[in-house]
């Protein structure tokens, strides 16, 4: 008969010492949850609106030019890139690479800088800055 011990539980935000590695790990979860809930809800709404016809679509499209619509879209774009870059970092780390303190920290910071840069570039392009 196994001597059953309490399974270890995950530590909450409060007990970590803040640093790039833990911040990116937590942001990975938050951005993932954001994409899952807000992103997929919007994707569903968007596809239903396209299927619904011109009128249904213009209701949704009209909102994306308002300030709150832009906040959601820019936020989702950033969450997408952050989760993407951080996800790639996780796949690399799954192979056992990048656990040395310096490389790990540099990788974490790179995902943040990368996601901000990619979001800024994409929206600059979208807003017609390069035309």
């Amino acid at each position: 008969m196994a001597a059953v011990r309490e399974r270890p539980t995950s530590p909450h935000l409060t007990i970590w010492r803040w640093g790039p590695g833990m911040a990116v790990s937590i942001i990975h979860r938050i951005s993932g949850a954001g994409l899952s809930v807000v992103g997929l809800a919007l994707l569903t709404w968007w596809l239903m609106a396209i299927a619904g016809g011109q009128e249904a679509y213009s209701t949704l499209a009209g909102m994306t030019s308002r300030w709150y619509g832009l906040v959601v879209l820019v936020g989702l774009t950033w969450a997408f890139f952050q989760h993407l870059f951080s996800g790639i970092r996780h796949l690399v780390m799954d192979t056992g690479m990048g656990f040395e303190l310096k490389a790990n920290k540099a990788g974490a910071i790179a995902t943040i800088l990368g996601s901000i840069a990619a979001t800024a570039l994409l929206w600059a392009y979208w807003m017609g800055a390069f035309k």
Binding site: A49, I50, G53, Q54, Y57, S58, A61, F80, L84, G87, I88, L91, D94, L122, Y125, W126
Partner: peptide
């Protein structure tokens, strides 16, 4: 991890599609 690799490709495709479609009105999307 398998689904994340698939989404790497599909997500890039999705974003690139939105970027390179001539317009994002209902008619074009349909």
């Amino acid at each position: 991890r398998v689904s994340s690799v698939a989404l790497l490709l599909l997500g890039a495709w999705f974003l690139a599609s939105l970027l390179f479609l001539p317009k994002l009105d209902q008619r074009t999307l349909v």
